[in-house]
Simulated scan of single mutants.
Amino acid sequence: MTLKKYILIALLAAAGLWGCNDDSLDAAITVDSNFQSGTSGENGWEPGFAGYASTADSSQLDTVAAIALLPRGLDTTQYGFRILSRYSKGNMFSYLKKRVSGFTPNGSYEMTLQVDLATNYSNDSAKGVVDQVTFKAGVSPSEPLTKLVSGVYAFNLDKGTGKQPGKDVLLSGSIASTNRDTRYHTLLRYSNAPVTVTANNRGELWFYAGTDSDYKDTTIFYFDRIIATFKEL
C-alpha cells in the first residue's frame, strides 16, 4: 500500500467525516459538516465570541450558540448551528471553529472551502445590519481562540476589521440575500479557486467561520453546512 493511500484511509478512520475515491492516488479528501441531530450534531465544531469588554454585562452583551432546527423558509426537518449575538458597545466576532487532524505534518494541500450560511437579511433590510455585518471564514495551522487582552476578549487570528479581511481570512462577504422577502435563505460562500494551506507540525488544520459585526442590536444566523476539500501537493 502506498504512503498516500495509507494517509487517506487513516484520515477516514480517524475523522469519521472524510471521504475519498480509493481507486485514485489523486483522490480528493473532503470534510463535510451538516450539523444534523444527535450527540454528534456539532460535527466537532465549537462556538466562540470575541471583541467584547471584560466588563460587559447582560444589558450590553447576549450570546447563544446551539444546534437547532432550521427556520421557516428552509427545510425545517433539518438542523443547523444557530448563532445569536448582541453587543451594544462595539464590535463582536461570533464564530465556529473545528480542528481536523490526520494531515501530513507540515504538509501542503490544495484546498477549496464552501460555507452555507442561512440568513433572513436582504439588501432591503435595515442598512445597519447589511452594512455593518460581514461574513468571514478561514483556515489556520493555529487554533482560533478568544483571549483576554487589555480588558477585551480578543480573537487571536488576523480576521481584519469590519468589511476588511485579514491575512487569516479565506472567505469574506455580505450577509445579504438577493431575495427581497424576510424568510430565511441559504447563502453559498465559496472560494473561487483552490488555495494552498500548510498543516502544522502535528498534522492539524483549524477552520473557523463567523460574522464580524459592528451592528449594536441582535443578529441571528444559522450555519447550514461547511465543506472543505483537499488534495495533497
Rank of each mutant, 00 (worst) to 15 (best):
Phe93Asp: 13
Lys163His: 09
Thr55Cys: 08
Leu25Ala: 10
Pro165Val: 11
Ala137Arg: 11
Val149Ser: 08
Val31Ile: 12
Phe103Asn: 06
Lys216Asn: 08
Ser58His: 07
Gly51Trp: 02
Ser94Glu: 13
Ser108His: 05
Tyr190Ser: 14
Asp32Met: 09
Ala176Trp: 08
Tyr6Phe: 04
Ser172His: 10
Thr30Phe: 09
Ala228Pro: 06
Pro141Ile: 15
Ile83Phe: 01
Pro71Thr: 07
Phe49Gln: 13
Gln60Glu: 15
Leu12His: 00
Tyr6Ala: 14
Trp45Lys: 10
Cys20Arg: 00
Ala126Leu: 05
Gln78Ile: 09
Ser172Asn: 15
Ala176Leu: 06
Thr196Tyr: 04
Gly80Asn: 03
Glu143Ala: 12
Leu96Ala: 14
Pro144His: 13
Ala228Asp: 05
Asp75Leu: 13
Ala13Arg: 05
Asp26Val: 09
Asp181Thr: 03
Phe155Glu: 15
Leu188Asn: 06
Arg202Ala: 13
Gly138Arg: 11
Gly16Asn: 03
Val169Met: 12
Gln36Asn: 12
Thr146His: 06
Val64Ala: 08
Val197Lys: 02
Thr55Gln: 07
Val129Lys: 11
Lys167Met: 10
Glu143Pro: 00
Pro105Asn: 00
Ser58Arg: 09
Asp22Leu: 15
Gly210Leu: 02
Met1Trp: 08
Lys163Asp: 08
Lys4Asp: 11
Leu148Tyr: 00
Ser37Thr: 11
Asn201Phe: 00
Tyr121Phe: 08
Phe93Lys: 00
Arg189Asn: 13
Ala27Ser: 15
Tyr208Thr: 03
Val31Met: 07
Asn34Val: 11
Gln78Tyr: 08
Phe49Met: 12
Phe93Pro: 10
Leu145Gly: 03
Glu46Arg: 04
Asn21Ser: 13
Val139Pro: 04
Asp131Arg: 11
Val64Glu: 12
Leu70His: 04
Pro141Asp: 04
Arg202Ser: 15
Ser101Leu: 01
Ser101Asn: 14
Thr2His: 07
Ser59Gly: 07
Pro194Thr: 11
Lys216Arg: 15
Asn21Lys: 05
Ser54Ile: 13
Lys89Ala: 04
Gly166Pro: 02
Gly138Asn: 11
Val139Gly: 05
Trp18Glu: 01
Asp23Pro: 00
Tyr52Gly: 07
Leu12Ser: 06
Tyr190Gly: 02
Arg189Met: 14
Cys20Val: 03
Ser142Gln: 14
Ser213Trp: 06
Val149Arg: 05
Asp22Met: 13
Asn123Ser: 07
Ala53Thr: 07
Ala199Asp: 01
Ser24Leu: 14
Leu117Asn: 01
Thr196Arg: 09
Pro47His: 01
Ala50Pro: 07
Leu188Ala: 08
Tyr222Gly: 04
Thr2Glu: 15
Thr39Pro: 01
Tyr184Pro: 14
Trp45Tyr: 11
Thr146Glu: 09
Gln132Arg: 15
Leu170Pro: 02
Gly44Ala: 03
Pro71Asp: 00
Met111Pro: 02
Pro144Asn: 14
Tyr52Ala: 15
Asn200Cys: 06
Val31Lys: 00
Thr211Phe: 04
